[in-house]
């Protein structure tokens, strides 16, 4: 039986691991390669690195991080942040990443999803969507809006429609990142996760808000997610990967035990 995946999310700026609260307040919390290695040994199923480096001329640091991770960590991992072209994606894949995460660049240029999917296969393309609740705009039939630029910029695009379109354009997976719950550690946005996982046939990854192992149970059972991203609850040492998996295993959820 296919296991529910637990994915550790590592935000990287200028080659250093950072953690943000609601996308604004960022703190350095360590070395991304050492963190990746430690979660790997503790049994994480997958890793995702978001490069939040501001200046594009320092992006090569990320390629070095990717190569280093790929030589030490033998599980799938993806990279996102600042990928604006097929060439950008090709570089991180050639450095050893399994998949790329497209976010703002895909909103601005949806064709990019198709181009990257055709070049490297749909399995290599993860569409990462930053979503905020917005009941005020009638055009947002789901009540959820796609936002970009780390949550600062509203787009007027309905989150569910964008998810469906992303799948059609060639995305192989979706990360549904709820800005309202991100970093709050009070649980995932379950309604949002559920309506999106009911609307697409590709795997959906819940993101934003995981603070306790029971939140992952909720994301899988109530949210219908195939995988869940975790960040704070691991980075600050509150729980180990093993703790989370043991909890889920006892509830009878399919998880990979190591």
């Amino acid at each position: 039986m296919l296991s529910k995946r637990i994915i550790a999310c590592l935000d990287v700026r200028d080659g250093k691991l950072v953690k943000s609260v609601q996308f604004v307040d960022t703190k350095e919390v360590g070395d991304p390669v050492a963190a990746a290695r430690s979660y790997y040994e503790d049994g994480i199923d997958e890793l995702v690195f978001y490069d939040i480096t501001a200046s594009s001329d320092r992006r090569d640091i990320m390629i070095d991080v990717v190569s280093e991770v790929a030589s030490q960590v033998f599980i799938p991992f993806s990279v996102g942040g600042g990928l604006r072209s097929v060439e950008d994606c090709g570089r991180v894949l050639a450095a050893g990443a399994e998949k790329v995460n497209l976010n703002t660049a895909a909103v601005e240029n949806p064709e990019l999803i198709t181009e990257v999917s055709e070049a490297f296969g749909a399995q290599a393309v993860v569409l990462s969507m930053d979503v905020r609740k917005n009941d005020a705009l009638a055009v947002l039939t789901s009540g959820y809006e796609i936002v970009t630029h780390g949550g600062r910029k509203p787009t007027g695009m309905d989150a569910v429609k964008w998810a469906i379109r992303g799948e059609k354009l060639g995305a192989g997976e979706l990360v549904v990142n709820a800005i309202d719950t991100d970093g709050m550690r009070e649980g995932y946005e379950l309604i949002l996760t559920r309506i999106i996982s009911d609307s697409v046939s590709i795997p959906v990854i819940a993101s934003g808000g995981g603070g306790h192992p029971e939140h992952l149970d909720e994301a899988f059972t109530l949210g219908g997610a195939d995988a869940a991203l975790v960040a704070s609850m691991l980075h600050y040492g509150d729980y180990s990967v093993h703790d989370i998996k043991s909890y889920l295993d006892e509830l009878g959820l399919p998880v990979r035990l190591t």
Binding site: M1, L2, S3, R5, D45, Q123, G172, P203, A227
Partner: peptide
């Protein structure tokens, strides 16, 4: 309701 591709960890 299983998805294809079969992606992830299985036994």
């Amino acid at each position: 309701a299983l998805k294809v591709p079969h992606m992830g960890w299985n036994s």
